[in-house]
Design a protein around this nucleic acid. Structure first.
Lengths: 349, 349
DNA sequence: GGCCGTGCTGAGAGCGCTCTCACCCCGGCG
DNA sequence: CGCCGGGGTGAGAGCGCTCTCAGCACGGCC
C-alpha cells in the first residue's frame, strides 16, 4: 500500500504527494528542514519513512555539482602497497572521516605509468569532489595532473620534488619526522650515549631524509661513518647494522629510520653478542605495533598517529571544498599540516 | 578561443554547436558512434577533442540508471584486512577488471556491527551497480542486506552459513580448496609418506574446512590425532606442529592449511632437529610469495590464482548486470565459480 | 513515375533533484 | 483600518544527458 509499484523507488514527487506538500518543501526537509514549519516537517518525515524514500544521488549531483565522493589514489611503485600496515591505518582513518562527512571513498589504483591518462580523465570528469594521494615520488605526474584538472587534492607525506616548497607547493599532511628524530637522538644523548649511529631510509623519500636531518640537527658534528644507508626493509636494517659495526665497533646507540630496520639491526646486534640496551641502545621510528612490540626487547620508538593523519587529510580536503566549492577559486589550496610525534619508551633504549 | 568561459566544462550542447549537429548525434558518437555517418563522426570527434569535452557522469547516470561503480565491502573482523597479502592481490584483480569494464571501485569499510545500517542505506541508494564482498562470517548480516536491497552481489570465498547451498545461496568465487588439498595429500602419498598430518585452519572458514575435507577425502581412515587445529597464523602453525610431534612423533609428512602455518611448523621442525623434507615432508597452501619462497627450504605448496579470482568476481557481477539490469528480474543471480589450484613443487616435499 | 522501405538526423521529452522567485498570509505599525 | 514587511510555501526553470520518435532523403521496386 505505501508502495504502489514495488519495482520503482519512490521519488521526491511521490513523497510530496503523500505528504500533501510541494517538492520544494520535501527537498528542504530532506536537507535539514530549515525554514519549514514544525508540523509540516513531521508530516514529510513520516511520508519519507512510509515510502522508504532514498534521495537519488545522481539527480542531486547533477544540480549541486557535488558528488559526495573522494578519490584515494594509490600509485603502486612496488609490490606492497596495501600490505603496508602504515597504509592500512591511514586508509582506515580516511574511511572513518569520510563517513563522518557523508562521503564515499573511491579507490583509484594506478596501474603503471601509462595509466595516468585514465586517472586524469576520471579526475577531470568531475566524478569526485577531491582527491587524496600518497607519498608520491619526486617525478610523479600526479601533482601536475591534479593541478591541470583542478581537483582539490591533499597529499599524504611531504612531497620532495624540486620547488615543492615554492610555486609547486601542494597541501600535505605529514608527521613531524624531523622533530621526532631530534627527540629520539636527544633521548639517546640524555641516556649518556656518546656514539650514536643512524640507519637512514631511502634517499628519495622525505620521511627518511627528514629523519636523517633531525639526527643531524642534534648531532651537528656527527661522524659521517656513523650513518648507514637502508631502504626501510628489515633486511636492509640488518645489512646497515653490520656495516656500521664494521666501521665503528665502538658505537653505543643506533637510531634507525623505522621499526623494520631497527628490527633487522637488533637481529644483527644479538648475533654479534651485543646486548640491547646495555651495550647498544636502539630506537626505531613509526611504532608499528606488529614490529615494535614484538621484538625482544620491545623497541623504544617514535610514534606517529597514522590514522589521525588519514583523518586530517580528509578534514583538510573538506575545508578546502566547503570554503568555496565552485570554480573560479583556483587557489583555495588548503594549508599543510605537520602532526606531532611522541617518543614511546620501551626496553630497547 | 575553444573555451569561451574557462571555468565551465563544455557540455554536449557546446560540442553539438561547434560540430554543427544536434545533441543526439553527439551523444551517439560519444557512445560509440553507431549509426552515424562517417564524416559526421569525424567532425564530432574533432569538436570533442578541441573543447576537451568530458561527459557528465551524473547526468548520464540519472537517465541510464547505471553508475559505473561497484562497491567492495570490507567487513573488518580482525585487525589485518588490508595487510593481508591475499586481500591485496584480490583487490588488485578487481581493480584491473573493473577498469576494463569502465567501472569504479567504491570502498565500503564496515566499521563494526552497528555500521551495517549505513551500508544498507548506501547500497539501497543505488549509488553502485553491484557489490563485491569477502569471506563473510556465518552470522554476517551482509547476505541478507544485499538480498533485501536487491543489489547484485558476488562473494569472495564460499559462504558457510546454514542453507548456503540451498535457498540462501549466493553467487561466489572460490578456489578449489578441497581439490587442491586432495592433490597435495596424494602427492605426499606418492612420495611414499605414510603418516601424513594436517594442520587445519579456523573451523568457521570454509577455505579451511574445505582443505581439511580434501585431506580426509584421500586419507579416509586417517588417525584423528594426526590433525591439529590452527588459525592460519604462523604462531598457530608452530603450536600445532609441536602438538602433533608430541602426539605422533613418528609422522613423516605435514600438510598445512596455509603457508603461514607451514612456516610456523617448519620452524618447530627445525628446532627439534628434524630435517625437511628428509625426515618430514611439508606442504603448504596459497603459494603466498612472501612466505613460500622465503622459507628454507622453500615451500612446496598449492597455488591459487588470487588475482584471477578477483577478476572473476567482477566478470560474474558484470554478467549479471548486463543480463537484465532493470528491476523485475529478482533472480538473475550469477552462478558461482570454483577456480582450479595447482601444486607447486619446491624443496620442502 | 509513384510508393515504400531503409538509414540518418534532429526535436523534444523527460530522469529526480535543487534553487530562485513569486506569492500568500499574517502581525505590527502608522 | 490600510499598508508594509517577513516568514513560509509552491511553481517552475533548469542541471546535462539519453532515447524515442518523427522527419527527411535516397534508392529500389512494381
Amino acid at each position: 500500500m505505501p508502495d504502489p509499484s514495488p519495482g520503482a523507488r519512490p521519488t521526491l514527487e511521490a513523497v510530496a504527494a503523500r505528504a500533501g506538500v510541494s517538492r520544494a518543501t520535501v527537498s528542504r526537509v530532506v536537507n535539514g528542514g530549515a525554514g519549514v514549519r514544525r508540523p509540516l516537517v513531521e508530516r514529510v518525515r513520516r511520508a519519507v519513512e512510509e515510502l522508504g524514500y532514498i534521495p537519488n544521488h545522481a539527480a542531486r549531483t547533477l544540480v549541486t555539482r557535488r558528488n559526495g565522493a573522494v578519490a584515494v589514489i594509490i600509485a603502486e611503485p612496488e609490490f606492497r602497497v596495501f600490505s603496508d600496515p602504515f597504509f592500512e591505518q591511514q586508509v582506515r582513518g580516511i574511511s572513518r572521516e569520510l563517513t563522518a562527512h557523508d562521503s564515499q571513498l573511491v579507490l583509484l589504483w594506478v596501474e603503471g605509468a601509462g595509466d595516468y591518462e585514465r586517472i586524469a580523465r576520471y579526475l577531470g570528469g568531475g566524478h569526485v569532489d577531491g582527491a587524496l594521494a600518497f607519498s608520491v615520488h619526486d617525478d610523479d605526474e600526479l601533482p601536475s595532473i591534479v593541478r591541470r584538472v583542478q581537483v582539490p587534492t591533499v597529499f599524504g607525506g611531504r612531497p620532495g620534488w624540486p620547488g615543492a616548497t615554492g610555486e609547486l607547493a601542494v597541501p600535505y599532511v605529514d608527521a613531524d619526522n624531523r622533530g621526532g628524530a631530534r627527540e629520539a637522538v636527544r633521548y639517546l644523548l640524555a641516556q649518556g650515549r656518546g656514539r650514536i649511529a643512524h640507519i637512514a631510509g631511502p634517499r628519495d623519500q622525505t620521511s627518511a631524509t627528514d629523519r636523517l636531518a633531525g639526527y643531524r640537527d642534534v648531532l651537528l658534528d656527527a661522524d659521517p661513518d656513523l650513518v648507514a644507508q637502508g631502504d626501510f626493509t628489515e633486511e636492509s636494517g640488518a645489512r646497515a647494522m653490520a656495516e656500521l659495526l664494521e666501521r665503528r665497533p665502538g658505537l653505543d646507540a643506533v637510531f634507525a629510520g623505522n621499526d623494520l630496520m631497527a628490527s633487522g639491526a637488533l637481529r644483527v646486534l644479538r648475533e654479534r653478542g651485543l646486548r640491547v640496551p646495555e651495550d647498544v641502545a636502539l630506537v626505531g621510528f613509526d611504532d608499528m605495533a606488529s614490529v615494535a612490540e614484538a621484538t625482544d626487547p620491545p623497541l623504544t620508538t617514535v610514534r606517529q598517529d597514522i590514522e589521525g593523519m588519514g583523518r586530517l587529510m580528509v578534514r583538510l580536503l573538506m575545508r578546502a571544498l566547503h570554503q568555496d566549492g565552485g570554480p573560479g577559486a583556483p587557489d583555495a589550496a588548503p594549508g599543510s599540516v605537520i602532526t606531532p610525534t611522541e617518543l614511546v619508551r620501551r626496553a630497547s633504549a
